[in-house]
Every structure is written in C-alpha cells, then in structure tokens.
C-alpha cells in the first residue's frame, strides 16, 4: 500500500512537473512582459521559497500559471491590478536598492515584501492591496500544483479505499 502510494506520487510528479517546467521556462510569457514575468517569478518564490522539505513557487510553475490565467480568463480589472501593482513594487525597489526586483538578492526581496505586508488583514494603499492579491494567487497556484499537493503537503487522499481510515467507535 505505502509503496503503491509512492509510485503513484512519483509518476504524478514527473508527469505534472515536466508540463509545468515546460510552461515556466521554455515558453515565453503570454500576459506578462519578460521583465514582469521575471519579477513575479522571484516575488512568488519569496512568498513560498524552496526549503529542505520541498521546492518552492518557482519550481511549481506558479508564475506561469498566473500568467496564463491572466491572459486567458481574468477580467480587465485583474489585468490592470497586476500591471499597476507590479509597477509600484518595481518603483519602490528601484528607490530602495537602485535595482529591479529580479536583480536584488533574495534577502532584499524579503525586505521589500515586508514593507508592503505590515497589516494583511487591513491593507492600506494600493501596494499593500497588491501584496494580498499576489500572495493569494501564489498560495492558490502553489498548493494546487503537483509539488504543492504531493511534495509539500504530502496529501494522502483522493484514492480508492477499501476501508475507511480513522478510529472506529
């Protein structure tokens, strides 16, 4: 049973992982500009980084997913929200570090995001609001990905069970 699990997980990971990697690296972004894409990719990795447990947002193809969603289905409001939000963050980054988001160090990106996420529950101003949008999209894209579900969370369900699991009364 346990081995069966592992084998199936491994299969899923390779199949899904290749697909996502393909989208993220080889293909050019469809909604974002190249620069925007690079920034989003790094910001998302800052929000959900690779650690010793599992790969992060970059490997999970989060930016590619959001790029495709924005191009294909999000409304004009969302498109505008992302474009403008990214512009503001880039401007803040230039002012603070004299470089763009993709050009600063991971630690500097943490500093940058800390500045715009002081009170997530009551975001003030367009940058803090955009942080919530960015974070929400990152979390959804990551935790619904193959890496998020199978590696990070290591979710065990969505399988056929002969017997229920848990404590019988």
């Amino acid at each position: 049973m346990a081995d069966d699990f592992k084998r199936r997980d491994l299969f899923r990971l390779t199949a899904g992982g290749l697909l996502v990697a393909g989208l993220g690296k080889a293909e050019t972004p469809v909604f974002f500009t190249k620069d925007e894409y690079a920034a989003v990719d790094e910001l998302m990795e800052t929000i959900i980084p690779t650690d010793d447990h599992s790969p992060g947002a970059k490997a999970a193809g989060c930016a590619a997913y959001v790029d495709r969603q924005l191009a294909e289905s999000f409304g004009d409001k969302e498109k505008h929200e992302w474009r403008e939000g990214l512009k503001l963050l880039e401007a803040r980054c230039q002012k603070k570090f004299d470089k763009n988001i993709a050009g600063i160090t991971p630690h500097q990106r943490i500093e940058l995001l800390e500045e715009v996420s002081k009170d997530e529950e009551h975001p003030k101003g367009p940058e803090e609001k955009f942080f919530n949008v960015l974070k929400g999209a990152t979390a959804f894209a990551y935790y619904s990905s193959t890496i998020g579900i199978h590696k990070e969370i290591n979710y065990k369900g969505n399988v056929y069970l002969q017997e229920f699991v848990g404590t019988a009364l």
Partner: peptide, 20 residues
C-alpha cells in the same frame, strides 16, 4: 488535512517560516 488545506490560503505572513 484536505487536498488544499484551508490554512494554505489563510495563514498570515510569507516566506520559509510561513511555508513550514
């Protein structure tokens, strides 16, 4: 635990500590 746990969306903060 569910497939996409509720706290994956609702936990405040960001970064490695939040992920853990």
């Amino acid at each position: 635990c569910t497939m996409i746990p509720g706290n994956a969306m609702s936990t405040p903060g960001f970064g490695a500590a939040r992920k853990k």
